[in-house]
Amino acid sequence: MSRELIVSKIEHGTVIDHIPAGRALAVLRVLGITGREGVRVALVMNVESGKLGKKDIVKIEGRELTPEEVNIISAVAPTATINIVRSFEVVKKFKVSPPEVVRGRFKCKNPTCVTNAPREPVEPAFYLVRKEPPLFVCAYCGRYHELGDLL
């Protein structure tokens, strides 16, 4: 573990571990973290991992992400582990799993879906219809979306 810890320890916050190599930026994008929020974020990319060969890690100082918030990242990082850190110690650990509903954020791929009609006040929503591998339907047009389609 000391070999892994390339960036300094965080006192309080969230470590997203076991992200498939090269996906750390996609994870931040899906979480809506741009860097302009002022939170301290450390990215580690392409480090050795026993489980994945190579992996990325994202460390977010000062913010504890909830399962609802992070489940969405299973879209880009289904293997991810979320670690909640308090006083420098991991106090909670959970795997991400696909959310039952995804609201806003993503666009429906169907160009004639009403959620893609210009200026209509409607927020896209997708319901999970199958867990493995995850499959969603658009709440408006009924079209299937795999997690990757949503990005």
């Binding site: 169907n110 004639t112 879906c113 009403v114 009609a117 209509e120 409607v122 408006y140 047009c141």
Partner: peptide
């Protein structure tokens, strides 16, 4: 013409909305 137009209409309207064909 758009899929989901009737659902959106039903969300906006208080009166009942009947879909006469959308998308």
């Amino acid at each position: 013409r758009y899929e989901g137009a009737a659902k959106l209409a039903a969300e906006v309207a208080e009166s009942p909305v009947v879909n006469g064909g959308d998308g």
